[in-house]
Amino acid sequence: MKKFFSSVYGAIIVVSLYVAFWYWYLKSVVMALFPIVLISSFYGIDFVIKSIARNPTFIHYHFFPKKLPLQQRKIILENFSFYKRLHPKFQTSFDHRVVCFLNKYKLIEREGFQLSEERKIMIAACYVQLTFGMYSYLIDSFRNILIYPDFYYSPITGKHHYGEYNPKMKIVVLSWNKFYEGIQFESSNYNLGIHEFSHAILGSFKHKRKNRQSIAENDFNLGCRKILVLWSDSGKRNLIIDSDYFRTYAFTNLGEFTSVVLEHFFETPEDFKAKFPDLFVIVKKMINYREDWFQY
């Protein structure tokens, strides 16, 4: 019952009954229609705010954008085709976000791994690529990023991993070799950075009430719910499994499926769009991805 009255149809019924009651009680059409005007105004303002928050010009405008040194920009240009294809004004915004990312999150070396400036830039750029369509992109679901040289034993899970996200400790953990491999082979459909950072974004809205989520978190949440509908449909899920497009690990649970889907979205977008157009559109909207960011 609660779910029904939270829906559009439920809201229409409630408003209709409310209007009918006040018309009967006050015998005034103006007073009876007042709640409709008020509600319409609220939803109109809400629509405008959300439209602005998703608009690329608004999202990527900075009064005083932070700049990267030329050498650091060169690192991104050489390793991220996403960045290379961006219009110059969006490259400026990308640079700004990379600086802000490195200022907010602490990158910690593990097992003697040496974290050079180049490696820090690449980790930041991977996160910025995933969240580039989001206005509120610096999330609080993680604070630290642990970087191991390779396959590592996690004392948290008691298992060996290439990467993980721990919401309780607010950490993202990466194996550098596997992370770098995902960056170098852009069409492999395996990108450890996108995979683990997408888990962190999932964790960002899971512990927040809807009215406390940012618009970006809300869009991501809505996309996940739409993916859940596909996931829950055994016929559609079997079609996806039988396609052999997504690796078997994707079907471990909904969270893993969402993360793997995002990897494919960035790695082989044309194949993804051709094979699963409906799912492609869902992902595109959930991260507010725009073709007009790019020069080609």
Rank of each mutant, 00 (worst) to 15 (best):
F280C: 06
E291S: 15
I194V: 13
K159P: 06
E109C: 00
K89P: 08
S204I: 06
S214C: 03
F42L: 15
E78P: 09
S16R: 05
L17V: 13
Y245T: 10
F142V: 03
K120G: 02
I201W: 14
G193R: 03
Y162K: 10
R143I: 06
L202A: 08
L254R: 03
N288Y: 07
E186A: 12
E118G: 08
R209H: 14
N189W: 03
E164Y: 11
L33A: 06
R85P: 09
Y148V: 04
E217W: 01
F151R: 15
N189I: 04
F82R: 12
P69A: 05
R85C: 13
K67P: 00
K89A: 11
H264W: 05
I13W: 01
F5W: 00
V128K: 01
L102P: 06
Q129P: 00
G255C: 12
Y152I: 09
V173F: 04
D219P: 01
N218R: 13
I49Y: 00
D292L: 13
E186R: 12
K3C: 04
S40F: 14
H207A: 09
M169S: 09
R143K: 15
S175T: 09
R119N: 01
Y162I: 07
Y152S: 08
Y137F: 14
H160Y: 12
H62M: 14
V30I: 14
K275Y: 01
Q184W: 14
Y190P: 06
L228I: 03
K27E: 15
D244S: 14
L70Y: 07
F205Q: 04
I59K: 01
L202V: 15
Y135T: 11
S234H: 10
K84T: 13
N238Q: 15
A124I: 03
H207V: 00
K208V: 07
Y9E: 12
G203C: 01
F151T: 12
T268S: 10
L17W: 04
Q129V: 03
F276C: 06
A216E: 07
F280T: 04
H207Q: 11
F272H: 01
N238W: 11
L33I: 07
S214K: 05
Q129I: 05
T258M: 15
P269N: 06
N166Q: 13
Y9T: 13
Y137D: 07
K170T: 02
I194F: 10
L202D: 15
N166S: 13
E267G: 11
S28P: 06
K226Q: 11
I145V: 08
G112N: 04
M31S: 09
C224T: 01
I227D: 02
F151C: 09
E111A: 11
H195K: 03
K74R: 11
P269Y: 09
F266D: 09
A200H: 00
S232C: 08
L230H: 09
F94L: 05
Q114W: 08
K74M: 10
R110Y: 07
G133M: 00
S234R: 07
F94V: 04
